[in-house]
Design a protein around this nucleic acid. Sequence first.
DNA 1: CATTTTATGATTGACGTATATCATTTTGCG
DNA 2: CGCAAAATGATATACGTCAATCATAAAATG
Lengths: 353, 353
Amino acid sequence: MDSPTLSDVARAAGVSYATADRVINKRGNVAEKSMRKVQEAVASLGYVRNVAAANLSRGRTYRLAFLIPAGSNAFFNRMRQHLSATAQHFASDRVSVEIIEIAAFAISGLHDSLVSLVDENFDGAAIVGLQGGALEAPLKQLRDKGIAIIGLVSDLPEEYRSAYIGIDNTVAGRTAARLIGMSHAGRKGLVQTFAGSLDAQDHDERLAGFREVIDADYPQIDLLETVMTKDDAAIVRAQTETQLEVQSELTAIYNVGAGNSGLIAALHHRQQFKPFCVVHELVPHTRRALLEGHVDLVIDQRPDVEINRAFAVLRSLIDQQPLPPLPDLVPTIYVRDNLPADTTDSTMKDQNP
Amino acid sequence: MDSPTLSDVARAAGVSYATADRVINKRGNVAEKSMRKVQEAVASLGYVRNVAAANLSRGRTYRLAFLIPAGSNAFFNRMRQHLSATAQHFASDRVSVEIIEIAAFAISGLHDSLVSLVDENFDGAAIVGLQGGALEAPLKQLRDKGIAIIGLVSDLPEEYRSAYIGIDNTVAGRTAARLIGMSHAGRKGLVQTFAGSLDAQDHDERLAGFREVIDADYPQIDLLETVMTKDDAAIVRAQTETQLEVQSELTAIYNVGAGNSGLIAALHHRQQFKPFCVVHELVPHTRRALLEGHVDLVIDQRPDVEINRAFAVLRSLIDQQPLPPLPDLVPTIYVRDNLPADTTDSTMKDQNP
DNA sequence: CATTTTATGATTGACGTATATCATTTTGCG
DNA sequence: CGCAAAATGATATACGTCAATCATAAAATG
């Protein structure tokens, strides 16, 4: 019942431990015949390398960096929180994590952080990225040093990262459109969309996906021109109030960006008919708005799932091993009924982990 | 930069390795003063036990059993598939998994499987359970042997399991109701619900949750009496065809159980107005129906997430360690736009794991 | 104070793999 | 055949922890 060790394999194959080791670790200088014998023994005994022993022997430690926008953005706060919890847990697996805050959404800030990474001897980095030629030089240096790089939430130039972990924003936009379409039950509609800015790639993609579906499948729904908000709650609030007044026929609102507290505030005191309202990212205030009925749907990115994936992907990249089976990452739809337990709530159900 | 070892801790605390070990592993016979010194050294050096070394030394292996209903049920097929993939991956962590097929949904079959478990020396078991007094005797034996037991998808008697991993079916039913409610946009509605049988606890809970929300928040929607289908596709098909004919005003259909291929077949050739259709579990045929527009929403249980959780929970139970941070498990809503990549599809995006 | 507990120190051998060294054998080739 | 090159064997040390042993030192007890 005990798992066979490499010595067992060697014995079964009729070779020495050294030769078996040469085969397993591909050190070369092995006759084809021996190789085959060892591989057969591995197969017949069902040998699997004991990673605990291997890691111990190698003295391997994983030094990971997470580059995440600074500031009080509720979404990234949530992500940081999950990240530190996860990091703490992985400490016993010799994984050390450094969270590096980058100046929010500015190429130059990210560039500088990347430059300072180069001298720091990390094994891997997960980076909330941006697209921009300025990043290529430091990214190239990191890549050439053999550091595993992945894009997180927002992608990096493709050439310089081994994976992207985040939702497909076109899919997110399409999903919002589908649900808003359904909510109209075939009736005429008029939808106001909000976005942070034109340069934000994710906002752009969400809007494009949104329009695609509305145009294709819900011709009876008209779209007003997107209002730009700089992701600023005050602007969102003002604009929402204006639009609600001007467009009395408004049937739905979709905010692809941030600043939802402004949107919620604007809807809060409204007694009349309230447009169907879809926003992104489950954070304390959107959760509350959902429960109180000001918002109808939240499309969430699941930062917890993303962080878990990031760890798994970085480790397999660093070890050059296949990725373990992981749950898929898709935009998650929340209504007021299927919300996860509030983790900011201190009460935990011990029976139901 | 290297992580400190227990020897480092002992040296810093001014005690011998043996004493430090006595503190860390709670072996007793240690003076309070030494205990404190060691704990301080642990804190100041940031010592974390190296689990790789510990597991190696202990020679710990985890023998896990998964008891899953036999048969060709598409949902459990999917779950089994994910389970074997995960099991294979964890083999290198000295986790061995045995999948035990139990006679589908019959107390007696489950009972016999549990009895045979008792002599088998597992460390833990994840069980797709049933409620029933007959199970208590073997469960008690398992518990008394110190085997970690968790309920999976469908719960066991609470007293005899340490955790339940599965969605809250009331929540799932509520979620379905909310979305069907939304799809009516305030208009009058008539909804037909289907369920497998009255004894299936999960079906019952889903229906209850569903009715709760419709009654409370969508008074203009009427519910027809639930049609029982034995989860048999042929029955579902016949009943759907009958109801579509008899109830010409039908605005929505909600099937809380299985047999969806029958439902889909009945809707397939229908040219006229199609009721809004909500079903459970993303499997090949529901996925196709969603893409082709026969079904509008699928509420999924995420067997992949459940399996991942099951492994994590069993391991921490067996090690008596805290649970790592894991993504929440909530009923997932799929529309045709936010479907995960089809894993039965052989093409994989290597850039986007 | 002598004696019994109790606590501590010193040390050792696993666990399974990685990695290195050095001696020896086998093979290939002219 | 003889020699170099290639392949193999034998063996040792390290990784950090667990678990055990045995001797010794300190504290508690009467």
